[in-house]
Design a binder for these strands. Structure first.
Lengths: 264, 264
DNA sequence: AATTGAGTTCCAAATAATGGAACTACGGGA
DNA sequence: TCCCGTAGTTCCATTATTTGGAACTCAATT
């Protein structure tokens, strides 16, 4: 993975930075990693790595099982649960997400831009009470999600260009915008429309309509979307829902203005 | 020997330890904290604290808004989402939780013991698709939750005694077991029954029945429970469900034996 | 018994954290 | 407008922690 730090350089300096690299390694891995696995990827001397892992385990950020395999620790859940519960942006948006869900009957997402990814902050779905946590906290690429493209559309040209250059494009479906050029072109139309569509660009058979949410200084940029299967979400239906989605985004921004102060 | 943090003393030593104290401070706070608020509680010199917070912000573990207030960062969600998705214990338990939910129609929880708290790892509820993330990751006291008491019941006497001595008992309802003695007494009966009840001990009007889950070496101790409102979950009903809950716990342990190896 | 691989421990040297103090920015009140 | 107090930031010599090479233990393999 490249640095998640927007426009800046590498970051594995500082004690914390190095530890975070390890945390990332373990949380990104498919399965629990053994000491040697981590050693191979971390580029740290054995002794150093051993102590670093020891500290992470001691703090509950990692867990070391009986077979010497490292996996993410429970402390992460604990910290995340608390930060999610009190996230102001999410709290402000929640009623509007529910309203959109009730109106459409489909799944509604709230996401924010972070580097070249969208992180989902909340998800409201109908009765099909499947996994809910599943999506929250997950990072998805900006260039092939409705929320991602909507978010980019409100950034200044320069920032978009810088981000686009840093995106590791990858084709998920035949509709995926797999280059900086095609992405930039689409952003233009999104700006005039005020909303973005995902036409099965990330996952075959899944469409969505999204509207951007931003603070005046762009310190927070994200969006809200309605997502669902292509057979129910025809393009006509999506177009119909564009207005309610834009309105929800507007209401959320209004809520932020009131609650967070007009400055940013 | 790298020490575990079970029953031991303070831990704000080491660079990471000090940073974790700050993370805890911010995630536990009701509202975003200003520099001065943290300064008052952290007991660090101004310069030091300032740099520490800077590092946490840089890594996305904290966020600093335009008004100079610190709140938990998105990186926490990202890390937690990944660790939750691949948690082996949770994955093994999931189908059994669903089965219990389908059988009872009530909410089913999976939790593990961590220090003197129970951390909920999963939650499956019926159609009332309210907040789901809400509970997952949350820490609740051992002594007044079904899962907590069940978990304690399979620990060796010595460990329970040590834990009980460390619990800051607090009375939540008139039924709360608010002393080490009453807790230890109840554990005896839980051991013979093989399941624990929460008779409105944590929250007025909420009852539950839970069964313990443990590994042979007790490195992982937790439980599974069915929870619901007292008017639906009469004590007779709870008693009826004790057996299925015990069976589910047994199946989960069998699954762990197979998947994680018989050693631990 | 010898060998190999995995994990752990040790300690002088290198590096990062510390914290007191000086500095800046902002916001009243006189 | 000037002055003072509070909040936040920066600086840097001192101090403490991390670093990493190497030696060591342990277990499985040949």
């Amino acid at each position: 993975m490249v640095s998640r730090k927007g426009t800046e350089g590498e970051n594995d300096t500082g004690t914390l930075g190095k530890l975070m690299v390890l945390l990332d390694l373990v949380t990104h891995a498919e399965r629990p990693l053994r000491f040697t696995d981590i050693l191979a990827q971390a580029g740290q001397p054995r002794g150093t790595l051993h102590r670093q892992l020891g500290h992470l385990v001691e703090e509950g950020l990692l867990e070391l099982d009986g077979e010497g395999r490292y996996s993410p620790g429970l402390r992460l859940l604990d910290l995340a649960a608390r930060s999610w519960a009190k996230n102001e942006f999410r709290l402000i948006a929640e009623p509007h997400l529910r309203a959109l869900q009730a109106m459409s009957g489909e799944t509604v997402h709230l996401g924010v831009l972070r580097g070249t990814s969208i992180i989902y902050l909340d998800k409201v779905e109908g009765q099909q009470s499947v996994r809910m946590y599943s999506q929250i906290g997950n990072a998805s690429p900006v260039y092939c999600t409705g929320v991602g493209k909507a978010a980019l559309s409100v950034l200044p040209e320069a920032s978009v260009a810088a981000l686009a250059a840093a995106i590791p494009f990858q084709r998920f479906t035949e509709n995926t915008l797999a280059s900086a050029e095609s992405l930039l072109a689409e952003l233009a139309s999104i700006r005039t429309e005020g909303c973005a569509f995902d036409r099965e660009e990330h996952e075959q058979g899944i469409r969505c309509v999204a509207a951007p949410i931003w603070t005046p200084d762009r310190s927070l940029v994200g969006g809200v979307s309605i997502t669902g299967p292509a057979y129910r979400l025809t393009m006509e239906r999506l177009t119909e829902w564009a207005e309610p989605v834009r309105e929800a985004a507007g209401s959320i921004m209004e809520g932020m203005r009131v609650r967070l102060g007009p400055r940013r």
